[in-house]
Amino acid sequence: MATEEHSEGLVFHPMDQFVVKPLFGSAGDPVHWYTITNVTLWMFLTIVAISALLVLGTRGRAVIPTKLQSVAELAYGFIYKMVEDVAGRDAVRFFPYVFTLFMFIVMSNFLGLLPTAFTTTSHLAVTVILALAVFLTVTITGFVLHGSKFLGLFWVSSAPLAIRPVLAVIEVISYFVRPVSHSIRLMGNMMAGHAVIKVFAAFAPLILLSGVGVLVTPLSILAITAMYALETLVAFIQAYVFTILTCVYLKDALHPSH
């Protein structure tokens, strides 16, 4: 059959883009913790992009800012206001930390949208560490600032006494589920969109192989474009969501009373 010959050209490897592999040497080399991999490359590019925006962009220190400086100031003001509004005025000392998280995630997400890029934030290893860092920061800050009173976070004093123990159990569970949802939300969003784009992309060359390609190829290209637009939105929204949740959790640490 003719279709069997054609179909050899159509390849579906939507998950290949997420493979961690050494940057130098052959493909089968083992990945040690110190190996320079594509993860290293794209994290390095993230640092470069952030430095270009926030350090090079502001080197003029102009009172009337350039375009790049405006973007840097906008990002600064956006996160500063978020920390201040959501977590309170005394949370401002965590601002550099929150801003680091936001800039890393938003830059990684956007760099990951470049064709052939590796999206570091689509990996559970990365988002788990980010979420655990927030979880530990919040828990340690809470206990350092409030001692055992921090446990009042789980004791809903506004509820009737009888159901407080039940609520406490639920609160404790939800507290420990936070880093899980926090990390999987980001990773899942980034992975799914990129995989879907890859699937559509695999359909795109069908016009070279088969008659139905006349219909499928334009549709898949349209779908890729639409998904790309959606992913651009998602890239920012997920960074925003991660950051604002970080602020919400920080608020618990600083003001644990309900």
């Binding site: 961690v20 913790w33 110190y34 190996t35 993860v39 994290m43 890393f104 290893a125 990365v126």
Partner: peptide
């Protein structure tokens, strides 16, 4: 590998 480079990057 990812965790090491992530911590370095952060």
């Amino acid at each position: 590998n990812q965790i090491f480079w992530l911590i370095v990057t952060l």
